[in-house]
Design a protein around this nucleic acid. Structure first.
Lengths: 338, 338
DNA sequence: CTGAAAGCGCTTACAG
DNA sequence: CTGAAAGCGCTTACAG
């Protein structure tokens, strides 16, 4: 393969020779292991400096079976994730959880074109583990990774059975709190704008709402689905208004959908909260700046990212007795819309 | 290191044994190389299937000195990039440029905590090359990568001399077009809201504006700097209005800043474009939906990402005589604001 | 078409 | 504290 060109990276071999020690000693010195004489340590450090040596991580990985990096896998078309404020905050939490760990975070987005290269990359030893977020429907990716022996932590409860731990927000309970708040404040005809039926987060918030309504004797048939966007929320609200014109409250499964609902309701001449009370979910910035300010269910987004990371790191370090799933608390934030 | 556990990934050695061939033949069969008998090919394929073999990419990389992946490095705090519509489109262009290449794109964000691990990752052989975008000031990263021998393509002209090719948009000419359009439509007191002074894109749009104004005899002293955000644009506009109340036109170096300028101007009772003409830069969606719709300079964002990718791939495949830099055309888009 | 062997650049028991 | 040697899992001239 040709001899080392002028700009070939120096190898450990060359460092060792320059320092007058063996490869083994050079390796130990570089990695800060004990049992290296002060003299050897200095000579190696000097040689590294002079040669501009950088360890070949690939070779190191092959020997240690560790890569020093983990992946964050996003099962969404990139451009969607990239403009979602939710993910930006999850990411911040992940970085925060990673700080001090010496691990590099590598982001991967599913690229329609090349599902295969994707799995090959992850299962091929490039990373020590993976965080998988925003799963849709019955995405087979998690199972694939788990079967390949890759440590995986899922962000959000998976819809299908898969033998991987997950961290989730207590969507069920949060939605239940929202429904109860509406009931407790005197509402009797409560509708909901649910999330997509192919995502656990959508399903859990719908079940939670049903649980909150249960036993009140009030009907729970006013349900419309949205796609977590403002436009989707507005459209769902229009449908609800048509099918259930007597509604006096609505729980939207996301703040963005709640904002859309607000628009539709106001356009229809309904006063918020006098005529219709509105509760959202997420507690994004937009909830506080909406008009009227939105009563909503807070979920700890950064904490969500941080916890996923913690869980994966714990697994990587071989900790025993780890919980198969972790649920983060949600709480009602009261503002003016309900 | 213990013998292969029950869930250890099968190796090529095991596949070869199961198929009754040598490691060399198994390798050739798996990689689709010529000179493998049909029989051997079938036996290997069968063994791969049965054992669930996946090539260890790390070992393969060590042998071939290729990783099959490239990095997209973003020199911005993650949460910033993640909510920028510009980047989402650049990313789309990159993926499009990558399609059919068999290369995995890996995203890296500079993490304040760990600059070091960052360079180690990139220079340590994890990737075959890197795309570096949104450089700030005198970021030493590109030089570092280049010195380590990593093929690099920069997105945007670097402010400091660095021996790496770059792809950029013709910001200079675009800004020049904007200034000339204002002059040609009869404006005589033209201000500009420039970008940050530590980014080439900011500087180039300012120089271009100066070039466009040159020779007209009109003054070019009405300059305020913004940070490419709506708020920054609004604040800069306030300063300009105070220092140069007689201005009759303003060129903002980004659409977001132009929108901010619009807000300030309208709040001050100036009519657009009757009293003050406004031109932006970028041609984001927001330019068309602003009121009044914004005259702006279009830059081909997806094409920008696609071209960076093309340039890096060309370099990786050893193509000769590649241009050290590529400039993408910009053009004026006329709407109502000027 | 095929296999034995060398090599990619590191780490790590093992025996001093 | 140190070094010779084996090994991580692959690829690829080289010689059949």
């Amino acid at each position: 393969m040709g001899r080392p060109g002028p700009n070939a990276s120096p190898t450990l071999e060359q460092v060792a020779r320059a320092a007058g020690v063996s490869r083994a000693t050079a390796s130990r010195a570089i990695n800060g292991l004990p049992y290296v004489s002060e003299k050897a340590r200095e000579q190696v450090a000097h040689a590294v400096e002079v040669l501009g040596y950088r360890a070949n991580q690939v070779a190191r990985s092959l020997a240690t079976r560790r890569t020093g990096s983990i992946a964050l896998v996003m099962s969404e078309p990139g451009n969607f994730v990239l403009s979602d404020p939710f993910f930006a905050r999850v990411l911040r939490g992940i970085y925060s959880g990673l700080s001090g760990s010496q691990l590099q975070l590598v982001l991967l987005m599913t690229n329609e074109q090349d599902e295969d290269g994707f799995a090959r990359y992850l299962c091929g030893g490039h990373v020590d583990g993976a965080l998988v977020v925003s799963l849709h429907g019955e995405d087979p990716l998690p199972s694939l990774l788990v079967e390949a022996g890759l440590p995986v932590v899922l962000g959000g409860r998976p819809l299908v059975r898969v033998d991987a731990p997950y961290v989730d927000v207590d969507n069920f309970n949060g939605a239940c709190l929202a429904a109860r708040h509406l009931i407790d404040t005197g509402r009797t005809r409560v509708a909901t704008i649910a999330g997509p039926a192919d995502m656990a987060v959508g399903m859990d918030r719908l079940s939670g709402w049903r649980r909150g309504m249960a036993g009140t004797g009030f009907p729970t048939d006013a349900v419309a689905h949205g796609d977590f966007t403002v436009e989707g929320g507005a459209a769902a609200m229009r449908r609800l208004l048509e099918s259930h014109p007597d509604l006096d409250a609505v729980f939207a499964a996301s703040d963005l959908m709640a904002v859309g609902a607000l628009q539709t309701l106001q356009a229809a001449g309904r006063r918020i909260p006098e005529d219709v009370a509105v509760v959202g979910f997420d507690n994004l910035d937009i909830a506080a700046t909406a008009s009227p300010p939105l009563t909503t269910v807070r979920q700890p987004i950064e904490e969500f990212g941080r916890t996923m990371t913690w869980r994966l790191l714990a697994q990587l370090s071989g900790e025993a007795g780890l919980p198969p799933s972790i649920l983060l608390q949600t709480e009602l934030v009261r503002r003016e819309s309900a």
